[in-house]
Design a protein around this nucleic acid. Sequence first.
DNA 1: CGGTTTCTGGAATGATTGTTCCAGAAACCG
DNA 2: CGGTTTCTGGAACAATCATTCCAGAAACCG
Lengths: 193, 193
Amino acid sequence: MARHKEFDRDEALQRAMEVFWARGYEATSVGDLVGHMGINRQSLYDTFGDKHSLYLQALDRYREVEARKMFELLERPGPVKRALRQLFEGVVESALGGGERRGCFVGNATSELAGRCRQTADKACGQMAAAEEALYRALLRGKKAGEIGGGRDLRAVARFLYSSLQGLQLMSKATRDRKALEDVVRVTLSVLD
Amino acid sequence: MARHKEFDRDEALQRAMEVFWARGYEATSVGDLVGHMGINRQSLYDTFGDKHSLYLQALDRYREVEARKMFELLERPGPVKRALRQLFEGVVESALGGGERRGCFVGNATSELAGRCRQTADKACGQMAAAEEALYRALLRGKKAGEIGGGRDLRAVARFLYSSLQGLQLMSKATRDRKALEDVVRVTLSVLD
DNA sequence: CGGTTTCTGGAATGATTGTTCCAGAAACCG
DNA sequence: CGGTTTCTGGAACAATCATTCCAGAAACCG
């Protein structure tokens, strides 16, 4: 029989995701990908198809790995408001940290491609819906715990929170003004009071 | 002496802005620009410098033309809340309309380039600050008119509103679900109550 | 007009793009 | 081992990229 794969597929995809996440689709060349993924050019095409297909797979990978972190944070026991504050503060802190400010991969993909690539738009919609659902469940839990007033349309609030998170992540790409970012977080979370 | 310019500089720049706005920086080729601007390739380089310089000038043009529309809307006499609702509803309507969903040029530029191009980040910051200021003035006017309660930190609310506007514009690139977008608008504006 | 300057269209540039081809090394398993 | 299969590195590919060069047409003003 035949030889086995030398590299770990998931690890290579993870690297690809990081490059696309940091640089976007158009600005990333296949050469960049080959360099960062640590695999052969031909292996890339054999395993993942072409560049566009790899990009879509990277988006899926993001959902499985990065977005899951958000889901876990929201499902953690304890006050929902505190979890939400951690979620938003986390964005601010990572934006003010020294590293590269990549924002949210899904947000970046939406901004760059959703307008002209149906597949990207569909994937972005799917991730939006999943995130919205996670936020909704968290809000529902907060309502049952008496933490959040009953008068609210929680579905609408969940949508609002996701939109706000995307807005905040965009802002944090342009500015390192901590006060400005925290102003946004504070007012956003005030709708829960 | 010499011959005069055949084309109108501002009109050409306006066209360039529209192309960059719709397609982003990397996905726009100089060939695209030449086609849509209706001027000669050499004239483009003579008049605007290289592609990157033209992009930055297009961002300035956006500020002068498109952002001004927002300023005027906010300074129009009448209830501030109504002006803000018009601002946000306008985003929803143009997203649901048949045209191409370009989002906000400044937001697009921030998402695509601010992370790795200082000049773009600076221009985006400048436009953010200008928009925030316009929102702040509008809120101040609303407060004086007794339309908005006095307990709020209006600077923070202005920042929040701009961030929310960017988030909404991003959402509207991925989905045409009117209810979802209007949910976001409704909850966002509820912070003014 | 005529001399000068600038605009214009198109070709040419060299670099880079995404993708594929090829020959050989490497690893599997009967 | 040995036959088979797949991986690997690098070259090769055509297309496109941003940019520049060039020769001629066009328009100005003395």
